[in-house]
Computed example of a mutant assay.
Amino acid sequence: MEAKIKLWLVLSLLLAANCMQHYCVHAEALVPCLFAFGDSLTDCGNNNNRATLGRANFIPYGIDFPQGPTGRFTNGRTSFDFISELLGFQKFIPPHADTSGSDILKGVNYASGGAGIRPESGMGDNIDLENQVSNHRAIFSEISEKLGGSENATEYLNKCLYYVNIGTNDYLFNYFFFPIYLTRLFYTPQQYADTLLVRLFKYIQELHDDFGARKFVVVGVADIGCIPATTHQTNGSCVEEMSDAVSIYNDKLKSRVDQFNNHSSTHSKSIFVPSLDRSIIPDFPVANAPCCPTPCLPNRTPCQNRSNYMFWDETHPSEAANRITAQRSSNDIMRLVQSSIQTTTP
């Protein structure tokens, strides 16, 4: 039996590698559904009709995406899109704002550009994490109705994967957005990280306790000290103060994920995966300038060699960078899914 499990894992990883290069249109998904919570790094259209400048449903955004501009804040696929392909989903997970007629039993993407863990973080009209979880509560009710009750819905959702990628705006458009926000006057970087994590895991615990979520992929905060929006002010150098604060948060996040695993239910498992950081800079000929000129407005002409650029605009990674970010977490995600199959198979 152990040999068979190892063989299955090897074959799954080979399939995963192939899926990262090509669309997996025939493979059966390795989990029944996939839910995403986050900000513009994961948003796929939830902000399209909101009263905010934080929208990306226009060209040149989506210039390399199969369906064109959808509200994704990049030229093509997000890291979450690549992960959904890795897991064998035949269609991209739909935004919550456009679930009418969608098969919500396959999952929903609640992410909103500009959103933060704290409700005041970000800019414009966005859906903060608390409201994203509230939206999931409504979807849970719909799933319960479809499956004949909340117990059946909970049992079904036990097998699904929950992807949480949020926190960047709590630093970029809150802690380091002085003097618009005065947060830095009241919290050291260590204290601020702690306050964010208390709130974040409050919502993760709610997903676990109220909706049956058992498998979480929790993504670290991106290295905002090295994005073009900050490096253009320092002649291309990373802003170490910002990078250090994010590093403190990510180190604490890893520890909190471990604590959550130790104190949650037997079949619950969470993993930490890193977000965009300077470790992938050597993979790109252009790592300190955006492909789409700043500001990336409708019908702007982007660079032609987009795969050479780490950043699509001044704050968001390119599809090429998103692919690398997803690839380097693929082994951990596959192990998480494989452990789920082992614990649920009779």
Rank of each mutant, 00 (worst) to 15 (best):
F176D: 09
A153N: 08
Q259N: 02
G220M: 05
T188W: 07
I204D: 01
K215V: 00
V217G: 07
A229G: 04
G122N: 03
N158T: 14
Y163L: 12
I227T: 06
R184K: 14
N135Q: 15
I166W: 06
V257C: 05
E145D: 15
V219C: 09
S255V: 13
F186Y: 13
L197H: 05
Y181D: 03
A213D: 01
I139Y: 02
E145H: 14
G124H: 06
H232D: 05
G212D: 06
T154C: 12
N126W: 04
K159Y: 10
F186E: 06
E240A: 10
Q205P: 03
F173T: 10
D209I: 06
Q233K: 14
T231R: 02
Q132R: 06
D125P: 04
N169I: 07
T188V: 07
F176G: 04
H208L: 10
F173G: 07
Q259V: 14
A193T: 05
N131I: 04
Y156M: 10
E241H: 03
S255A: 15
S255D: 08
F260G: 00
Y192I: 06
T195V: 13
G236D: 01
G148F: 10
K202E: 08
L185P: 05
D244K: 12
L147F: 14
L182D: 11
Y249V: 01
L185D: 14
R214Q: 12
D170K: 03
Y192G: 00
L157A: 12
D258L: 13
V257D: 06
L253S: 00
E155S: 15
Q233N: 11
S134E: 12
E240H: 09
E155I: 09
T234G: 02
L161A: 07
N152V: 10
Y162R: 10
G122D: 05
R184V: 11
A153Q: 08
A193N: 10
E151A: 12
V219N: 04
L182E: 11
I224P: 05
F177Q: 01
L196W: 00
I204H: 03
D194E: 13
T183R: 08
L185A: 12
Y175Q: 01
Y163W: 15
L253W: 08
L129Y: 05
G148Q: 11
N250T: 00
T195E: 12
E145M: 11
E155L: 15
E241N: 07
D194P: 01
D244I: 02
Q205D: 12
P228T: 08
G225Q: 04
L161M: 11
D128S: 05
Q259T: 12
K146E: 13
R256K: 13
A222W: 00
A138I: 13
V164T: 09
L196F: 03
F176R: 08
I127S: 02
